[in-house]
Design a protein around this nucleic acid. Structure first.
Length: 192
DNA sequence: ACAACGATCAACT
DNA sequence: GTTGATCGTTGTC
């Protein structure tokens, strides 16, 4: 369980940074489905990314969950991360693996899901989770409203990360939203 | 059938 | 700041 502190919006087929820019395909089909479902895809052959579908059927749009502040289940999360790391590379020496495990062991709680690939890893998500209803209170993966006594976060808008391929004006659109100065936000400090 | 390319991360110089 | 890991999806032929 954790608190979402960073998201990005991908608004539709006209958005050249969106997976919907080529129209409906087998991979992005979930984006064309009902709002409130998950769309999980694999990037760079290694990392899964969690999205929340946001528009009505036939209108492809989604929010990429880029960072979460882990609040419960932190140590299992950390252990799983260490296991993944140890299994990660073929050509890694025992010493390097031990050093990597040690780094993760020392990682602050709030940095365990600071990035879209890390969010999916922390919550054990892969593409098989696509389609799950995130608004169903009985779902094993779900969104919940902030608690009544929680302060409303101050939100900062920035351009989206890692979409240089999209070109102007899509690179510049301020469609990344972060909780200002929150230590779980990913990316360069200037964009927190 | 094939080649190129990512909505990334960690390690290294 | 740069680079390697790693593979499913997409566009092209």
């Amino acid at each position: 369980m954790g608190r979402i502190v960073e998201i990005e919006a991908y608004i539709g087929p006209e958005d050249r940074a969106s997976h919907a820019r080529f129209g409906e395909t087998p991979r992005n089909r979930a984006m064309y489905g009902p709002a409130g479902r998950a769309y999980v895809y694999l990037v760079y052959g290694m990392y899964d990314c969690l999205n929340v579908v946001t528009e009505t059927v036939g209108t492809p749009a989604a929010l990429l969950v880029r960072a979460v502040e882990p609040l419960e289940g932190v140590e299992p999360m950390r252990l799983d991360r260490i296991l993944r790391s140890t299994r990660r590379r073929r050509s890694v020496t025992g010493e390097q693996a031990a050093a990597a495990a040690d780094r993760i062991a020392r990682l602050p709680r709030e940095r365990l899901a600071s990035g879209p690939g890390l969010v999916a890893a922390a919550f054990g998500l892969d593409t098989g989770w696509t389609g799950i209803d995130l608004c169903d209170p009985a779902s094993p993966l779900r969104l919940e409203r902030q608690l009544d006594d929680e302060r409303r976060p101050e939100v900062r808008e920035t351009p989206r990360i890692g979409i240089d391929f999209a070109g102007s004006p899509w690179i510049e659109r301020p469609w990344r939203f972060v909780e200002r100065a929150h230590s779980s936000v990913s990316g360069p400090a200037a964009l927190r």
